[in-house]
Nucleic acid binder design. Structure first.
Lengths: 344, 344
DNA sequence: GCCCGAAAAGTTACCGGTAACGTAAAATCT
DNA sequence: AGATTTTACGTTACCGGTAACTTTTCGGGC
């Protein structure tokens, strides 16, 4: 296909109309099923549409009218994390069923990338934006305000969002795990996670966790925040470092399940028995957890539902309906076999 | 935010120009850095752009000119499958770095969904389309031909693609596994997968696998194709059914790793030793495979690279460059501990 | 000062639809 | 039948940019 061949001239509505022997406007009405034409005319126009393989140019429609496009911009940190892939799946399925298209943006957990992406996406006149996370750059906030379209912030619940917030309270989820572990009798807790420049959900979990642990009479002895992705190997090496630091921890809380799996792998290699020698707790309840010989103590969130709910919120807001400012989709703790009741 | 408030009238180029005391055209030139204006004028215009928070309407640009948009439609079967999430990640990152936006379409493995999605996406005048799979509906093919834009078909390598194909030969990958297992001494092979209406990659793998097994003097004793998703539990129950059918199989080949994990779980539950009583082989080399107590025999494909390569192919084709019709990104077999060398 | 060419800026037309309005023909009413 | 409404179309203008062209401004050489 050469450069020239590719520029196949597209068939316009005017051409269809001419072929059918009617005006552009009549053809337009037929295609939109708006009424105001005879059955005879409708048949003529549709015949030509099929014959010529007419594909409408929605750009022109959106551009001409005061209507917005059916694009919804969706920013997601990354898809390496299974959890966000599920969220995106939920979003796209639900948006698709309502006739909207997802314009994806992987923003790598940085607000700078997000800002650049927002600028680009806004230039396409989207119907709305779904953003992961609650922290945005100043200029991004300006743009969003000026654009004046529905914004759904997902992931970490935000009591004063730009528009609507859907997610869970990560602080609370950390708190619940902390309380659970202290309740089992653990007192010297460790934490292994990754570090981020901005306040984020994992940080909120750690804060809630620490609060619960201290409230319960325990303490977070060691916190390791690696400069890395929150995945298997950082979990492995983070655990190695934490244990090598000489701190006497009786249980480790990980930023997520992937890291917890890494930690478990390290323990196995180092002949540290779980849960006899040490307790392990994760976050997220990854489906593969069920493959493991030992059920991981973790916390379950329905990521697919989070995605679907976000999309529903977006559709509602686009239609101008009101929607709860903060929609909590909830979570539940999954007690596993990687922790045990300890005698105090 | 009420219905009215939301219709914040956007700032147009004309308004910026008027505020700066120049014509629309001059402002347009400044914004595009096209030259033909004085430094003084540039400063005036840019000052107003910042002040008014002007966001260009790219719809108008694309609509007006003969240029295409910077949208690239990407159809992916689903994201529940970790593999496709990685492919998408590779695509979006690479496209993004070249200034293109991903318009996502989850087509659920059906060509009908794909057709509907193609129709919609084409109406947005995309720069190109990346499609997973090589089979498309007749009407979809017509639309794609008429649209005349770059198409990259990914996943299963296609020697006569619509435009460009990037992926691996699934037939060959199945063949390689078959040859490997027969080479180890397995003779009575079983297969557990899912069924699809259309010819797809998994079917190609099974065909290649069967060919190699038969060539090597073995036979595929039982094939179970469940009407379900290719995930953990179908793998579990498929294995149960296969073994309950009374067939004497010495090794089972699964459609993918998730199903293989399910099969392993069933074996554990049924006290069937792996690999002493039975061999297990998967496909895809999921990252979590490394978490397991026993390394799975599987086949590795770099999904991220597949995505990146597809995006590169797309960028090349949009620029009008030629690109190899079929780009094979290769794979390699991963011998694991779920299979062993058998005495014949 | 005058002329000329280049740089800087303005004008016009157009992309492909649709809103708003106008008009002719058919259907309904009195 | 004539007046009135309804139906079935057609006309015009416009959305926000940009290509192509025209006009104005400016600096320098003579």
């Amino acid at each position: 296909m050469s450069e020239k061949e590719r520029k196949i001239q597209k068939i316009s509505l005017a051409e269809v109309a001419q072929a059918a022997g009617v005006s552009k406007m009549t053809a337009s009405r037929v295609l939109r099923g708006e009424g105001g034409y005879s059955e005879n005319t409708r048949a003529k126009v549709m015949a030509k549409v099929d014959l010529l393989g007419y594909v409408p140019n929605r750009l022109a429609t959106v551009f001409a009218g005061d209507t917005n496009s059916t694009f919804v911009g969706v920013s997601i940190p990354d898809l390496g994390n299974e959890v966000f892939a599920q969220v995106l799946e939920g979003i796209d399925r639900k948006l698709g069923s309502h006739g909207y298209q997802t314009v994806l943006g992987l923003t790598q957990h940085t607000i700078e990338e997000e800002e650049a992406w927002i600028r680009t996406v806004l230039s396409w006149q989207p119907a709305g934006l779904i953003l992961t996370g609650r922290s945005h750059s100043r200029r991004a906030l300006d743009m969003l305000r000026t654009a004046g379209l529905p914004i759904v912030e997902i992931w970490d619940l935000n009591s004063s969002p730009l528009d609507v917030s859907v997610g869970i309270s990560h602080y609370d989820s950390g708190f619940e795990m902390g309380r659970y572990l202290v309740g089992l009798g653990y007192r010297a807790l460790g934490y292994v996670g990754t570090s981020h420049d901005t306040a984020n959900a994992a940080t909120a979990r750690l804060e809630g966790f620490s609060k619960a642990v201290i409230d319960g009479g325990g303490s977070v002895v060691r916190q390791f925040c690696l400069h890395d992705t929150a995945s298997f190997y950082p979990g492995f090496y983070g655990t190695e470092q934490l244990l090598a630091s000489g701190a006497a921890v009786d249980c480790i809380y990980f930023q997520n399940d992937s890291m917890a799996f890494g930690g478990m792998q390290y323990c196995q290699k180092a002949a540290i028995e779980i849960p006899d020698d040490i307790g392990i707790a994760g976050w997220g309840d990854m489906p593969v957890a069920s493959v493991l010989q030992r059920r991981l103590t973790t916390l379950h969130v329905s990521h697919l539902r989070l995605g679907q709910t976000s999309a529903e919120a977006m559709v509602a807001r686009i239609s101008g309906e009101t929607y709860p400012t903060a929609k909590n989709i909830g979570f539940h703790l999954v007690p596993g076999a990687t922790t045990k009741r300890n005698v105090l």
